[in-house]
Amino acid sequence: MKSITLSWPFWAVLSAAFAALTAIFAKAGVESLNSNMATLIRTVVIVIAAIAFVLITQSWQSPGSISNRSWQFLILSGLATGASWFCYFHALKLGDAARVAPIDKLSVVFVSVFAVLFLGEKLSFPNWIGVGLIATGAILVAWRL
């Protein structure tokens, strides 16, 4: 039997749990601070943690061994991540975490659409219903009457 720690659902659930904590901690941290400065502090912490994780797990790979295509897409991913974080922290500064986070999770809907359009992935009809339900749920959770 395959270990649960080798399965993608295990790591995806952990990612979701840590993302939830990120929203709670960020909202508390940005309360009396400029959102851009808060994003900078978070980014520095992430860089230090990522370096430590690579060293501890002995995952270092020579930068010269990484293909140009990988570099290009990882740089684009980094820029998109940075833009997302700045927008997210600004939204948290202005709004409630319980309303900002669900709208941020519309990224699940965008990923599904982009994966089909740009990566050629296929989603079944039930998958599309799920995407629609995620979009509807995110909007309903964030909606304040």
Rank of each mutant, 00 (worst) to 15 (best):
V111W: 13
L33D: 04
R42L: 14
S62Q: 07
G120D: 15
I51H: 03
L119V: 03
F86V: 07
N36Q: 11
V44P: 08
I139D: 12
A49I: 03
A98L: 15
V54M: 08
P102T: 06
F86D: 02
G78T: 04
A19M: 02
V45C: 09
N34K: 02
W71E: 10
I48F: 13
T43D: 00
L117T: 09
G132E: 03
G132H: 10
F53K: 02
P63R: 02
V111R: 12
V100A: 06
I129D: 09
S124K: 14
L92Y: 07
W8H: 07
A19S: 08
N36E: 08
V47N: 05
R99S: 06
Q58W: 01
A97F: 08
K2I: 10
Y88H: 14
F125I: 15
A52P: 11
A19N: 05
W11S: 03
A91E: 05
T43S: 11
N36P: 02
I51E: 02
I4D: 08
L145C: 07
L119Y: 06
G130S: 09
S32L: 08
L145P: 15
A97P: 08
V100G: 00
V116H: 15
K2C: 02
K27H: 03
I139Y: 13
E31S: 08
I103V: 12
V47F: 13
T81F: 13
T22V: 05
F118M: 14
I56H: 10
K27Y: 01
F114D: 02
D96H: 12
W11E: 05
A50Y: 04
P102Y: 12
S84T: 10
V113E: 05
I66P: 00
A17V: 06
L14S: 01
V30Q: 03
W85D: 02
L6D: 00
A20I: 04
G78A: 03
I41M: 11
V131P: 11
K93A: 13
A38M: 04
W85K: 00
R69S: 14
K27C: 00
G137W: 10
L123V: 01
I75E: 07
L79Y: 00
C87P: 06
W71I: 15
N68S: 11
F86G: 00
I75S: 01
P126S: 09
I4N: 04
A80V: 09
L79F: 06
G82L: 13
L33R: 04
L119G: 01
I41E: 13
H90C: 06
N127V: 03
T57D: 00
A91R: 13
R69I: 12
M37F: 14
S67A: 11
V54I: 14
G137F: 14
F18Y: 06
K105T: 14
V47C: 12
I66V: 10
H90N: 12
E31L: 04
M37I: 11
V116R: 15
A23T: 07
E121H: 07
G132M: 09
A49R: 07
S65A: 12
A26Q: 03
I75Y: 11
H90V: 05
L33M: 10
L55W: 05
D96C: 06
W143E: 06
A23R: 11
V109W: 15
S107P: 08
Q61L: 11
G130N: 10
L6A: 01
P63K: 05
A49T: 08
